[in-house]
Every structure is written in C-alpha cells, then in structure tokens.
C-alpha cells in the first residue's frame, strides 16, 4: 500500500499528477476478471456513417472509467451503446458485442437493462415535475408503489447526491427552480434512485461552473463503492482527477486504454501523448 494522496487536492497535470493506486495488484490493469461491462469488436453506424471501429474495452466494477478524446471521436456514442439508448435514434445499428456481467445486452429486456445501467446527460434534464416526483419517477415505473418506500428512497438518493440538505424543505417545488449545478446533481440522484449497477455520465459537468463541478466529482467518489461509473468528459483534468482507468478515443477508434496514471504520465501511443499534453485538439 502506498500512502494515499488525494487526487482532488492536486489536479494539475500531467507531470505532477498523483493518482490513488488501487489496492490489489490484479485490479491495476484494466483487463482484469472484474469486468462489469465489456465491449468486444464493437462497430457502430449512423446510417452509412461508421462512428466506432472495433472497440474492445472492459469496464471494471466499482471503478471510475473516463472516456476522453476530441469532439466527434465517438466517446459519447460508445457510452450510449452501453444502455442501448442509441436505439432511439433512427438509422443506428451496431455489430459486435456489449456485455453486462457477461450477458449480451442485446439479449436482455431493454427496460431492465436501463434500470441496471443508469445514465446522466450532458445537459441537466429534470422532468417538469416536483423535485420529489423527479427522484421518485424511476422507482415508480420500476414497481415501487408504497408512499413510505418512495419517501425513503427519495431521501436516500438525495443524500447520496449530497443534495438533501439543500432541497429537503422544498421537495414539492418544481425541479426547474434549482440552480444548474443542483439540477445536474438532481439528475444524478434521479439516476441513483433505481440503484443502478453501472452509472453512465455523458459530459455531466460541461455546463457547470468549477464549484458545481467539484461537488459532482466528490459525489462520484462517494458512490463508486456501490456503483461502477463510466464518465465521458472533454476535460482532461477531470479525467485525471476522478478516473481509475481512462480510454482515449480518436476518429471512432479506441487509441489507448489504461490506468489513468499511465495515460497521463506515460502513454504508449503518440496520439495519446499529443492529446493529453495539449498538442492536439
């Protein structure tokens, strides 16, 4: 065990970066047996346009995996295949496999899959309902009916999203009354309310100020013991701060995937180095 150094306190990169090492040696490499999700030979198409080429990637359980790369590189597309939300866009299809706990997601019931694999979007998208009803929506469609259970779940989820203290007195107010950062944490709480095994975040902080961003990053740390997290970000410092493993996408290909410290300190590919040192994009 090396001494723990908080990566939050020293976000500068790449040379001075301190990454919290993983406790077990086996988990240090991204290709361990603890893979919660796995993509194999994944090719993705929007109509005739191919957005992803032969992606092979393993997402480790209870780790934060960051996906970085220039815009249009396919990182969001990849994220959105993990819970099959891309299916709602017309003309999309993919070849290859996406596995959740070793089972092909295509073979699973899509609503059950999405309950297990939650998602938070780039723009906070609270429903035009009260704060309470926003959080309670997921549990409700998934069969929770008792008012008491719902109240417990809502409080638990809001506490996990570190939002409880701020909103406990206005649960019946419309969610639109919250600030941008609060709305995004509400969306995380909403996603957490159905106890997802995996949480996908698509550039969740891109519209937020640094303080709100920090709060969300702290939140991710606090939930990662219960949830596997995949975060797409255009912000390399953020990837360096929060992620255990990082994948670098470019032009629809996964250029490199490794432990975050390796990606930022000692990348094996020239493109990765150019990107993380700011010589590209």
């Amino acid at each position: 065990m090396q001494p723990k150094v908080s990566s939050m306190s020293s976000p500068s990169f790449p040379t001075k970066m301190h990454i919290e090492p993983h406790s077990s040696g086996a988990a240090n490499t991204p290709t361990s047996k603890e893979a919660k999700m796995r993509a194999a030979n994944l090719n993705f198409f929007y109509g005739s346009f191919q957005a992803l080429y032969d992606i092979d990637l393993e997402i480790q359980a209870n780790r934060i995996t960051a996906l970085i790369g220039p815009s249009g590189c396919g990182k969001s597309t990849f994220l959105r295949t993990l819970n099959r939300i891309n299916e709602t866009i017309r003309g999309t299809r993919y070849t290859g496999e996406v596995l959740l706990d070793g089972v092909d997601v295509k073979s699973q019931d899509v609503t059950a899959l999405r309950r297990r694999v939650g998602m938070v979007f780039q723009k906070s998208n609270p429903f035009p309902k009260t704060i309470f009803d926003n959080i309670a929506y997921g549990p409700k469609v998934n069969g929770m009916t008792s008012k008491q259970d719902l109240e417990v779940t809502v409080e638990k989820s809001l506490r996990r999203a570190a939002l409880w203290e701020e909103v406990k007195d206005k649960l019946q107010k419309p969610a639109s009354a919250l600030s941008g950062g609060q709305q995004q944490r509400l969306c995380i709480a909403r996603a957490m309310a159905v106890d997802p095994e995996v949480l996908l975040l698509d550039e969740p902080c891109s519209a937020l100020d640094p303080i709100a961003t920090l709060k969300i990053e702290e939140l991710l740390f606090s939930i990662k013991d219960q949830t596997t997290i995949v975060i797409v970000t255009h912000n390399m410092q953020q990837a360096a701060r929060v992620a255990d493993n990082t994948g670098f996408f470019m032009l629809g290909k996964l250029v490199e995937f490794d432990r975050t410290e390796m990606i930022f300190r000692n990348p094996s590919k020239k493109e990765t180095e150019d990107y993380v040192t700011g010589r590209f994009g």
Partner: peptide
C-alpha cells in the same frame, strides 16, 4: 419536447409508452 426528456425517462428503465 426536447429529446433529452425522452432519453432521461428511457434511461431510468421506462417503456416507450411510459
């Protein structure tokens, strides 16, 4: 209605009708 609203509901495990 913004697309994100639909996707947020679907991502919580709602059916298309829900």
């Amino acid at each position: 209605v913004p697309r994100e609203q639909r996707e947020a509901a679907l991502a919580l495990g709602a059916t298309q009708w829900e």
